[in-house]
Design a protein around this nucleic acid. Structure first.
Length: 574
RNA sequence: UGGGGUAUAGUGUAAUGGUAGCACAAUUGAUUCUGGUUCAAUUUGUCCGGGUUCAAAUCCUGGUACCCCAGCCA
């Protein structure tokens, strides 16, 4: 990839509806006033210490989106790798994969904070020489005590007034690795009584004899986020530094550093993080779920990670549309996960081919159908997309239908099959249930039906109607598959609202994964590959899982279809 | 309790002194070879109290509630 700007010509996703969010408004004003010579340079600066999640997608779509919407705009992907003890190279790869998969392109603008370590060191020396920074020998506990509290001012460190010469000497020796971890820090000399805690002589460098994923053991001091971040933006000539709300308090500190250094000063704009019902969104908590084995991996389809959602069957288009719809603001809000589900249904309804599959098979013998006949019925691949064409589906004497589609003693609102009832088998025939076979425990194990040969294809020449159409698969042609059905990861809308002495883990949904290993699917799925997406008619959208092997087709349920019958049933229970 | 932020239907989000709109959710009904899709309709809102104004979600004023900050995390 060359160093070209990533001017992506994407239709401006943020301005489809006339009104734009407050950040895009600021950017537009800056462009028209020529504040930054008309430049728009944003960045997405993840720390490579975990996988990206849907909350990051909000930030990615915002930053890359703004860049794409403005002529000559660009968005940098920058790894904020200032803490070697928490960061790993493998996360760097997954993050790049996820951003690309979401549909964004950073062109040649891939950067690492660690590339600027030398420059940052020079800046620190400059501050020391100008009397704005000092080496402090207090340990972590003492530093905390000296800092004061929210209501009480702090007091000056005894090392605050070291000479420039001594500070230079000590700082150089810190860099040379002469001192132990935690024994000294470099601090900015600002104001120990500031009402803004961030301004009470914040730490700029800590001693860390740790192996960094990119710089190895070259450094024994590492910059803190607060010191590094503004510099990174400045070095890259960022115009609009978009970040989350908690950094609002830090802005005066970034301003202070940049002013003292007299270098380029991006405009920081803060917005609220994404919160979603029935899930958690902190990397720390997600890591905990992975490490404690409560989910299988970072890309477990129940996780709100980009990789988990991809594996579950979400499309980048759906995620981008979701991010567009939720908007941008400055106050904390929690989005109903139903909106996410709406977005994926909306996309998949238009794009995925329909297939017939039976999750919980019930054997049906069509008594008056010839024993060894088979017919291949025409089926429409996608009623929302003519160009998707048609396929042939095999029909024969023994088929499977869904257990839920038969009731021996059906209530009034149940439209499906019951003793003596006639229904349509989709794309095939009308059938009438003539007999119910049970095992010794009274469980229904088999149905017998008769079919009407005149209804071939699914319509009755005499014009008679049926109340219901069922999906089915031919027993002798069906492929066996394993289906993994997912439900919300947590049972509570806000998992953090846990009982006294408990935490979010106590709200984990024990039934968030249900594995059905005896599912049947029509043969057209024979060559399905991981990440292929289909709709199982009347059931939901499904996606072929990466655990799929030659012998075993594994398929994830992305989301169910909207199901008004399920609602009716639920009401009946109440 | 010091400082910094923020409040619009159930949930999100518009409206920058001039009809409080849109989406999701919910509820009806129509259409349908998916109880899907589509279409039509309905319910629900400006945190509270004063003030300015012909007119306030918007301006002023006083409250209230919620979020963030006391890492050598980001």
């Amino acid at each position: 990839m060359g160093q070209q700007d990533n001017d992506q010509n994407r239709e401006s996703e943020g301005s489809k509806e006339g009104s734009v969010d407050f950040i895009r408004t600021i950017v537009a004003e800056d462009v028209s006033s020529n504040k930054w010579d008309g430049k728009v340079i944003t960045r997405f600066p993840p720390e490579p210490n975990g996988f990206l999640h849907i909350g990051h997608a909000k930030s990615i779509c915002l930053n890359f989106g703004i860049a794409a919407e403005n002529k000559g705009g660009r968005c940098h992907l920058r790894f904020d790798d200032t803490n070697p003890v928490r960061e790993e190279g493998r996360y760097v790869n997954s993050i790049q994969d996820d951003v690309r998969w979401l549909g964004w392109d950073w062109g040649g603008h891939l950067y690492y904070a660690s590339d600027y370590f030398e420059k940052m060191y020079e800046y620190a020396v400059q501050l020391i020489k100008n009397g704005f920074a000092y080496v402090c020998d207090l340990d972590a506990g003492q530093t905390r005590e000296y800092r004061g509290t929210l209501t009480k001012p702090g007091k000056d460190s005894p090392y605050r007034n070291r000479s420039v010469e001594e500070n230079m000497d000590m700082f150089m020796r810190m860099k040379e690795g002469e001192f132990e971890d935690g024994s000294r820090v470099l601090r900015a000399k600002i104001d120990m009584s500031s009402p803004n805690m961030n301004l009470r002589d914040p730490v700029m460098y800590r001693i860390l004899h740790a192996e960094h994923h990119r710089t190895g053991s070259k450094w024994s001091i590492y910059p803190t986020y607060d010191w590094a971040h503004g510099l990174e933006d400045s070095i890259e000539d960022i115009t609009h530094s978009v970040c989350t709300l908690e950094f609002e308090n830090h802005r005066p500190l970034y301003d202070w550093y940049l002013d003292k250094l007299e270098i380029h000063h991006p405009q920081q704009i803060e917005f609220a993080r994404l919160e979603l019902t029935y899930t958690v969104m902190s990397k720390r908590k997600l890591l905990q779920l992975v490490e404690e084995g409560r989910v299988k991996s970072w890309d477990d389809p129940r996780m709100p990670t980009i990789s988990g959602m991809r594996r579950r069957g979400y499309s980048p288009e759906a995620i981008r549309e979701f991010c567009r719809r939720i908007g941008i603001n400055k106050f904390n809000s929690t989005i109903d996960i139903a909106l996410l589900e709406h977005c994926i249904r909306e996309d998949l309804n238009k794009t995925s081919n329909r297939v017939m599959a039976v999750l919980r098979p019930l054997k049906v013998v069509i008594d008056n159908y010839p024993d060894n006949d088979e017919e291949w019925m025409d089926a429409v691949n996608n009623p929302e997309d003519q160009s998707a064409g048609t396929r042939k589906v095999p029909f024969s004497k023994v088929i499977y239908i869904e257990q839920d589609d038969f009731m021996e003693d059906p209530p009034k609102k149940f439209f499906r099959l019951g003793p003596g009832r006639e229904v349509r088998l989709r794309y095939a025939y009308f059938v009438t249930c003539t007999d119910v076979i049970k095992d010794d425990d009274g469980k229904i194990v088999e149905l017998h039906c008769s079919y009407d040969p005149a209804t071939r294809g699914g319509n009755a020449p005499d014009g008679r109607k049926v109340k219901s159409t069922l999906h089915w698969v031919s027993a002798s042609h069906a492929l066996r598959t394993e289906a993994r059905l997912y439900d919300h990861l947590f049972t509570k809308e806000r998992p953090d609202e846990a009982a006294e002495g408990e935490d979010f883990r106590s709200n984990l949904n024990q039934k968030s994964l249900q594995i059905l290993s005896d599912c049947m699917v029509e043969p057209s799925l024979k060559d399905a590959k991981p990440f292929d997406r289909v709709q199982f008619e009347r059931l939901g959208y499904f996606c072929v899982d990466t655990d799929t092997t030659e012998e075993n087709l594994v398929i994830n349920r992305t989301v169910t279809l909207r199901d008004t019958w399920a609602k009716v049933q639920k009401k009946g229970v109440k």
